[in-house]
């Protein structure tokens, strides 16, 4: 088997707070293969952004990786220093589009100057080479090449977001981490951005980790995905598997809660309650209080990611992973049809 591009193994990230250790990510494992688009879906506060920050050494001061490993192309990076991250990874290997990144452009510098500066810090490209590469990227993300010398304010919101993507891509990284890249944009702008992300995918040179709350964006643009709930990874698999055969209760319910424009009359599923704040060690399933299929065992022990139905590529962290979907379908025949058969 080839080495995965990015791999998280039993990763636990905790934040030190006034009330004790807050566990943002608990025992999370997933892999992203070379030139694969991978989606990480979950509600706000589920720890999905924390994972990306951990992978790039960008955790806040009070947060740290307390257990587990992150490997990039086989090399362990969880203990990298700031300097190592800068010299070896950031921008040229892994680039990051943070949340609300349209505002991350320096308003006083032309885009080309910003690119030149990034190139100077992270590579030995000359200024002209850097700008030339940025031009190519502008073309790919659908911005006019000659506008590389514009200031950020000369672009509209959607164009700024594409300029950020161009900047993220121009040093030809192998992995792009996009954290809610389009939440601040309107649907049409969002669609334009994903159109270009999809075109870049066709070249097969880059993998993407897409962090979002919007499961439909992941279904549309990713190959594989993980669903996360309150620090734990619930389920991982190809988007088709997750769509057709979700085995974790949270995935099943989340999918049903999502509006689908094709069926405006379908009743939306509801997930009761709120995700918990996990303090200290998480030795329970974080979904237990919201789960209609919970059994006492779920309170006592944290389920680990185990293959469902013997499928190694479809791990689910639920004690009842083999039976929940059938029970659910039996209860809601109609919903299962519209959801599963399309």
């Amino acid at each position: 088997m080839t080495t995965p591009l990015l791999e998280a193994e039993n990763l636990t990230v905790q934040y030190e707070t006034a009330n004790g250790m807050l566990t943002a990510v608990s025992d999370a494992s997933f892999t992203i293969n070379t030139s694969e688009y991978f989606g990480l879906v979950g509600e706000s506060g589920c720890g999905k952004s924390t994972i990306t920050k951990a992978a790039l050494g960008g955790l806040d001061d009070n947060g740290r990786i307390t257990a587990g490993k992150i490997r990039y192309k086989g090399e362990e990076i969880q203990d990298y220093t700031e300097k190592e991250f800068n010299e070896k990874l950031r921008w040229k290997e892994i680039s990051w589009i943070p949340q609300g990144s349209m505002n991350s452009l320096d308003p006083l510098q032309r885009i080309s100057e910003q690119a030149a500066m990034i190139a100077r810090v992270h590579t030995d490209l000359s200024k002209d080479e850097a700008v030339e590469r940025l031009r190519e990227m502008f073309d790919i993300v659908g911005l006019p090449k000659e506008r590389v010398t514009d200031y950020p304010h000369q672009f509209s919101g959607g164009m700024q977001q594409r300029a950020v993507i161009a900047l993220a891509l121009f040093l030809r990284p192998s992995l792009l981490i996009a954290d809610e890249p389009t939440t601040a944009l309107d649907v049409i702008m969002q669609d334009q951005v994903f159109k270009y992300l999809n075109e870049i995918k066709q070249d097969g040179e880059i993998g993407m980790l897409l962090i979002t709350h919007d499961i439909s964006l992941v279904f549309e643009s990713c190959d594989r995905m993980s669903v996360m709930h309150a620090g734990q990874i619930s389920e991982t698999g190809t988007v088709e598997t997750i769509y057709e055969e979700p085995h974790h209760p949270y995935t099943i319910l989340l999918k049903e809660a999502f509006p689908d424009l094709r069926y405006p009359d379908r009743e939306l599923g509801i997930i009761e309650g709120n995700p918990p704040q996990n303090m200290g060690e998480v030795d329970y399933c974080t979904f237990v209080d919201r789960c209609p299929w919970a059994v006492p065992e779920c309170q006592e022990q944290a389920p680990s990611l185990e293959p469902v139905g013997g499928d190694e590529d479809h791990p689910v962290s639920c004690f009842r992973r083999e039976e929940v979907l059938e029970e659910y379908r039996a209860e809601n025949e109609t919903v299962a049809q519209t959801g599963g058969d399309q």
Partner: peptide, 25 residues
């Protein structure tokens, strides 16, 4: 039409096609 076409559909098998609109409001 453009607005409806741009809404993502939660179904990996459904190929909706991306918007052809350019520009901004």
């Amino acid at each position: 039409q453009a607005l409806i076409d741009a809404v993502p559909i939660p179904d990996p098998k459904y190929n909706r096609g991306y918007t052809t609109l350019e520009g901004d409001v």
